[in-house]
């Protein structure tokens, strides 16, 4: 493999060869000075998800932990993104203000498209979910960061909050008619009870899929990156292949970070639509 790349880059000549030699030299130096301790046991992809207290040893419900730290950073990021950037209130926006306006318009339009104008009452709520998830996802991609949304406890609370809001709102706004959501009046009468059971089951499965989708996607991506990082350490001289793979996966994870926030938010809108218009 190394010979092949050597030859092909030699044909290319110039910069490519110099960069390759420099990279190889760096790798040799790195393997000489930073020898991986026991290669086989150096892969610990799940360590990044451990919740540790910032001070002391035990984790009580109020203990400041790395979760607390990254939650604080997320709040600060949201503040910078949406408040500091718009402090100019410019008619012709700066770049930062454009980002704030784009995210506002993105979620605003999403709610309006899915639920109609009545749904705009719940815009701050949906926007809170979206901003928290998208910021947490992207912050989690920083090296050494703790990924808040990779924890099922976090995403389950988010999904349950949506589930409870939608259910309570559905009954408050529509009363008993909210149960019409499960009674498919378009189907033939004998089928309706069967469909009702399926609908009820799918309704209660919603928060599960809603939360596990988000946490699972992020956890898997981050774990894969760590696994490849472990390979990079174990492979020594050939470590640059896993590094290339990490680069590619990182690009994919950037996409996933946004898409999962989008999916969570649009599903929230879809569920909200059920609460506002329970009739099929």
């Amino acid at each position: 493999m190394a010979h092949q790349t050597d030859q092909s880059s030699a044909q290319g000549g110039g910069y490519g060869r110099i960069i390759l030699y420099a990279a190889l030299a760096l790798l040799v130096i790195a393997t000489l000075f930073l020898q991986p301790q026991e290669a086989a046991t150096s892969i610990h992809p799940m360590d990044q998800f451990v919740v540790t207290p910032l001070f002391g040893d035990s984790v009580a419900w109020y203990t400041p932990t790395n979760v607390t730290l990254w939650m604080l950073i997320a709040v600060a990021a949201v503040f910078v993104l949406l408040v500091s950037s718009t402090s100019g209130r410019a008619v012709i926006p700066s770049r930062a203000q454009s980002v704030a306006e784009l995210s506002y318009g993105f979620v605003h339009k999403m709610i309006e498209d899915v639920t109609g104008r009545e749904g705009l009452k719940y815009f701050p709520y949906v926007m809170t979910l979206f901003m928290f998830i998208v910021v947490a996802n992207f912050l989690g991609l920083l090296p050494m960061a703790f990924t808040l949304t990779s924890h099922i406890a976090v995403t389950a609370v988010l999904a349950l909050a949506v589930f409870l809001t939608v259910t309570i709102l559905g009954f408050v706004l529509n009363g008993k008619e909210f149960l019409g959501l499960f009674w498919v009046s378009a189907a033939p009468l004998p089928l309706r009870p069967v469909l009702a059971i399926i609908e009820v089951i799918s309704y209660f499965v919603r928060p599960v899929s809603h939360s596990i989708r988000l946490a699972g996607n992020l956890m898997a991506g981050h774990a894969v990156i760590k696994v490849f990082a472990g390979f990079a350490g174990a492979l020594g001289l050939f470590g640059f292949f896993p590094i290339l793979a990490i680069t590619a996966i990182y690009a994919l994870e950037l996409l996933v970070a946004f898409i999962q926030a989008y999916v969570f938010t649009i599903l929230t809108c879809v569920y909200l639509k059920d609460a506002l218009h329970p009739h099929h």
Partner: peptide
């Protein structure tokens, strides 16, 4: 409990900011 507590604090904070 720790995660849920801090998450709720965070969500309330973000909700108010927004």
């Amino acid at each position: 409990p720790n995660q849920i507590f801090w998450l709720l604090v965070t969500l309330v904070a973000i909700y108010y900011i927004l």
